[in-house]
């Protein structure tokens, strides 16, 4: 029971880096762009946010800085992949390697330093509930991320912006012929994705585990990419997927604390193994992917 409480209380915070990055990638992929650089953009955002908080700039400035860095790095990707129509896989990998390199370069003198995280805000009344009470005690970024998830869901479900984004991803030729600037919309979607990845990195390094270590993103950007597939490009399912991964990363700790003898390396690989297995299950359902997949994902478009 204590383990359940522990997982419930920490799940949302652990899920937030996955959620933010996956939602950003979702917007880009809905517009038809596959950006594989998420891991590197998160790493760069993490380094910049950490440095800002460490020097007393505060969390607001840290998230702004990380978001801006994410936008800039993603615009570089957009220039190469959309402007010059380079191979999106190669361009994404290049951005990823560059982001990880810059992150290590900037963070070098901050290795294993710590900063102060954020205070938790409780929902009065609900937070006193037994067992599930911990769910309602979260830091402000978690609350904002939940609001952001709702907003993105609403944009796709109800607004014209959401429809235009999807049109550009499904059939760029048709969108172009009725007068939508396909490339500009795709660039904007990619920039938004970069900002969200920057936020995700900032949360990981300054709130969730407020200490700096090179390589601290540890594959979370790649899992976020997989989450978009798991969620079959639907906001709500991506949210539940992120929660699942948040819970998995804590369940390992809970099991260890509960005296279950497992090699720590197995626990560390658990998120990766689950990603591989779920990816296999979801992908083998071809109907599901056909129904929700993005038709022109990764294809270059030349107006």
């Amino acid at each position: 029971m204590i383990a359940v409480e522990f997982v419930l209380a920490g799940m949302l915070a652990a899920a937030t880096p996955f959620l933010l990055a996956a939602l950003g990638e979702l917007v880009g992929e809905r517009a038809g762009v596959l950006n594989l650089g998420v891991e590197g953009v998160m790493a760069l955002g993490a380094a910049i946010a950490f440095i800002i908080v460490y020097h007393g700039g505060g969390h607001v400035a840290a998230f702004a800085g990380a978001g801006l860095a994410g936008v800039l790095l993603s615009l570089l990707f957009a220039f190469v992949a959309l402007g010059l129509q380079a191979n999106q896989v190669a361009a994404g990998l290049a951005i990823g390697i560059l982001g990880q390199g810059l992150s290590a370069l900037f963070g070098k003198t901050y290795e294993s330093l710590t900063v102060k995280g954020l205070a938790k805000l409780a929902v009065p009344g609900l937070s006193d509930l037994p067992v599930v009470g911990g769910l309602f005690v979260q830091d402000s970024v978690v609350w904002l991320s939940l609001a952001g998830t709702l907003a993105i869901w609403a944009v796709f479900a109800f607004t014209k912006t959401g429809l235009v984004l999807r049109a550009v991803g499904e059939n760029p030729k048709a969108a172009h012929s009725i007068g939508y600037p396909v490339i500009a919309i795709r660039v904007a979607a990619v920039a938004f994705g970069g900002m969200m990845s920057g936020f995700a990195g900032a949360y990981a390094a300054t709130v969730y585990t407020p200490l700096w270590a090179d390589g601290m993103i540890a594959g979370r950007g790649w899992i976020a990419l997989a989450l978009v597939v798991f969620g079959t490009w639907l906001t709500a399912r991506i949210f539940w997927g992120a929660c699942l991964f948040g819970a998995v990363s804590l369940a390992g700790l809970a099991a260890q604390a509960g005296g279950v003898e497992l090699p720590s390396q197995l626990l560390a690989s658990l998120p990766y193994l689950i990603t591989i297995i779920v990816l296999g299950i979801i992908s083998s359902n071809r109907r599901l992917l056909k129904l929700n997949g993005v038709a022109s994902l990764g294809d270059p478009f030349k107006p």
Partner: peptide, 14 residues
């Protein structure tokens, strides 16, 4: 299973 080889091969590296 028709899973994306980019993600699977990277996860297997980790």
């Amino acid at each position: 299973l028709r899973a994306n080889e980019i993600l699977v091969s990277l996860m297997l590296s980790l």
